[in-house]
């Protein structure tokens, strides 16, 4: 058993360094044949990141992305076999990756892609209709809880990341971008994961609702009309799945 552990530890080390592990053999050219494993591990994980971060890939180009992903993969292998979860730490990695420092918005673009992936695989839940939300609001006292669809995510950024993300989607065209903070609501709509621009106030309210705060608390620091805009947006996109009364 210990021998088997040692064999695998040596094999794993060889995948990192390229050195052929002791006891590994082949009919001629063992280094080249062993390298098939090394290449598959590196390429398959880099490829998983290409699929998860297509907008980052488009912004930095194929060569830069693959070089960057290669550094990330070497130090941050997946912790589970569910590859659609892989890369959650990639945005943070980009923040501290000096060659990417000239694109300060890049980590937040990567965060949008992480959140879109989460939204895509989030649990299913039936939304309430606008009418049933309205009925629930009419029926009870002021202090309510809103349960949002499991796919709902919010991103806030110091950079115009919603505009940059949108213009880098297939078929979109570049257009002038105003340097300004932006926020977005991300959720699942059938097969699609829209990234909808929202105000900072709406972002704050939705974030507080997602954290489990009651509606009144979540909206306590904004005027009622601002709160209404946020609630209307959630109703319009059918993102409320339950209204609880207390």
């Amino acid at each position: 058993m210990h021998a088997h552990r040692d064999t695998q530890a040596a094999f794993r080390n060889g995948l990192k360094t390229g050195a052929v592990p002791p006891g590994v053999t082949a009919v001629g050219d063992v280094a080249r044949r062993f390298s098939v494993y090394r290449n598959t591990v590196a390429h398959s994980l880099t490829d998983a990141l290409c699929q998860r971060f297509p907008t980052v890939l488009r912004l930095v180009g194929d060569a830069f992305f693959k070089a960057t992903a290669g550094v990330f993969v070497a130090d941050n292998p997946p912790r589970s076999a569910i590859l659609h979860d892989y890369g959650a730490a990639f945005p943070e990695f980009l923040s501290g990756f000096p060659p990417a420092a000239t694109l300060p918005y890049l980590p937040d673009i990567a965060r949008i892609e992480v959140l879109r992936g989460q939204a895509y695989h989030a649990a299913d839940a039936l939304p309430m209709t606008a009418q049933s939300v309205s009925d629930a609001f009419a029926a009870g006292p002021e202090e309510r809880g809103l349960t949002l669809h499991p796919s709902v995510r919010v991103i806030t950024s110091d950079h115009p990341v919603v505009a940059i993300w949108a213009m880098n989607q297939p078929g979109a065209r570049p257009r002038p971008v105003t340097p300004e903070p932006q926020a977005a609501l991300i959720f699942r709509l059938g097969e699609n994961i829209p990234v909808v621009s929202i105000t900072a106030d709406t972002a704050r309210i939705v974030t507080r609702l997602l954290a489990g705060e009651r509606l009144g608390t979540a909206c306590s620091d904004v005027p009622p009309q601002i709160a209404s805009v946020a609630i209307e947006l959630l109703i319009q996109h059918e993102l409320i799945i339950q209204v609880t009364q207390t």
């Binding site: 088997h4 006891g23 997946p78």
Partner: peptide, 25 residues
């Protein structure tokens, strides 16, 4: 095959020696 080691998932089907120990594993 094996594909995980030390908590890392390597995303490849890696080979193992064939002996009495690995047979039991």
């Amino acid at each position: 095959a094996w594909s995980s080691h030390g908590g890392a998932f390597l995303n490849d089907l890696l080979p193992l020696p064939y002996d009495a120990t690995t047979l039991t594993v």
